[in-house]
Write a protein that binds this DNA or RNA. Structure first.
Lengths: 141, 141
DNA sequence: AATAATTTGTAGCAATGGCTACATTCTGTA
DNA sequence: TACAGAATGTAGCCATTGCTACAAATTATT
């Protein structure tokens, strides 16, 4: 048998957690770029309706990641900021790594967005190790 | 701003498609390993209840990927077989690539399971290109 | 063959994340 | 200030994927 007993397992869970990370990261990005983050900004970025954004923000607010008041801007709590920082680091690692192996920036950004949630600590470490190698040794392209 | 206008976009869709690919791939694996695939085999592999498996199989059957009759074994249609083959190839590429950069087999299998759905054609090609390099040149570990 | 155990199916609930339609609040401008 | 337009919120619908509990069918055992 090609795979072990169940190398798979729980792949189809944690969707909510991935969403949380994506939103928290997006909020941080938008705040940096525009000063403040509004529901509208998020709905444009995530390409979903403002209704979906509002509902997810309510959940993240209940979870203590997002600080928010009706009709007001969207902010991050200390915990949200922590998560955003961790997400950003991981995101940058994956993007840089993909670019290093020859993937275009646009594709790297796109693929990383989905892949980053599935890269374990071990894999991220391997990527960083690889990034530390001088470009020439990589022999790519 | 760290990212482009919306390098993100539709990451949060296609969950159903990912599920389809995972199940179709699992069915093919189990058939190879055990001769036939049963609902029970899938519920164990995916670590979900048999109820969840049954419902998903019904959907995949409606979609023309899975062939099935009540209380009978689970099979793949020609289209299902095609999808399984493509999924398997992609899965193997990602696993081999991760191992190449120094990730253990267990982690590679685990991470690939989630990452493979987000690796674009361009990224997969970059991985294959890298795999074609002699191991020494990679300078990893 | 009858009964027990296993497997599969169905009913029905919950959470998540899409949506449209409609109500409300804010903002900007006449 | 009053009104128009933009931004948010709410109600309520759907699909997907989890679940438990219970029903039905299949398989194995006695």
């Amino acid at each position: 048998m090609p795979n072990g007993p169940n190398p798979f397992a729980k792949t189809r869970r944690d969707h909510a957690d991935e969403t949380a990370e994506d939103y928290v990261e997006a909020i941080a990005d938008i705040e940096v770029a525009s000063g403040t983050c509004r529901v509208k900004d998020l709905s444009e970025r995530m390409q979903v309706s403002h209704v979906t954004v509002t509902r997810i923000l309510n959940r993240l607010s209940d979870a203590g990641l997002v600080a928010r008041e009706p009709y007001g801007p969207v902010g991050l709590t200390p915990r949200g900021l922590e998560m955003a920082a961790a997400s950003r680091t991981r995101h940058e690692t994956v993007v840089s790594f993909l670019e290093r192996i020859g993937v275009s920036n646009a594709t790297a950004e796109h693929d990383a967005e989905g892949m980053e949630h599935h890269a374990s600590k071990e894999t991220l470490e391997a990527m960083r190790r690889h990034l530390r190698q001088p470009e020439d040794d990589a022999n790519l392209g």
